[in-house]
């Protein structure tokens, strides 16, 4: 099978599949080696450039054929229901905690956030953004991890496809600004004494 024929076969498979297809699945379905499949995927992605209504994306541990972002309004007219509801800032922060620390338990999330995470975790479970990941060997609270639906929604290639958490850490000046704000709010004793 030539690369061109293989890319046509992959296009048909990605069009048919309701979920992203991993490289292993694509190799099995097309009875091809990983190298040719990867070349054919690149060829397919090239064919679905800016002029196309679809694009090839590596997401949630596989490859998917999806609509281009600028066509979302016209695509949504086809749906009986509006797209997924927005996530609140609290839900996004909780998702970030779980995505970086998974598997992580609800008490650990609450301890890190400083407030109860019960309602937020329940809401994320209901929306399919997270799922149960079992308990630790010592027992204890249920732990949670993110789902492929989470990776699809945020365009992540897989569970670990996140920027390093160190990129988000506060600099020394920013940390000092936090302390200063606390002092201004009446929580500090030393400087004004």
């Amino acid at each position: 099978m030539t690369d061109h024929d293989l890319s046509r076969a992959l296009e048909a498979l990605l069009f048919m599949s309701p979920e992203p297809l991993g490289l292993v699945s694509l190799c099995e379905l097309t009875e091809s080696a990983p190298g040719p499949v990867q070349r054919a995927l690149a060829l397919l992605a090239e064919r679905h450039g800016a002029a196309s209504g679809l694009e090839v994306a590596e997401v949630a541990g596989g490859w998917a054929l999806r609509t281009r972002p600028e066509l979302a309004p016209v695509c949504d007219r086809l749906r009986a229901r509006p797209p997924d509801e927005r996530l609140s800032p609290a839900a996004l922060e909780t998702l970030a905690v779980i995505a970086y620390l998974e598997p992580v338990s609800r008490p650990d999330i609450s301890r890190l956030r400083g407030v109860s995470a019960d309602t937020t975790v329940a809401s994320l479970l209901e929306r399919g953004m997270i799922e149960e990941a079992g308990r630790s060997q010592e027992g204890g609270a249920m732990r949670y991890r993110t789902t492929p639906a989470f990776q699809e929604r945020f365009g992540l290639k897989g569970p670990g496809d996140l920027p390093a958490i160190t990129e988000f850490e506060l600099t020394g000046d920013e940390a000092e600004a936090v302390r200063r704000r606390l002092r201004d709010a009446g929580h500090l004793a030393d400087e004004l004494a």
Binding site: P18, A64, A96, Y100, R113, F168, V178
Partner: peptide, 25 residues
């Protein structure tokens, strides 16, 4: 300690597939 996760939440919001987002079959 929690600030990095707050910023990660903001980063996630910038990639949230609601406005001008991709759609899957």
């Amino acid at each position: 300690a929690f600030a990095p996760f707050q910023r990660a939440g903001v980063w996630l919001r910038s990639r949230d597939g609601i406005d001008g987002a991709v759609r899957y079959r």
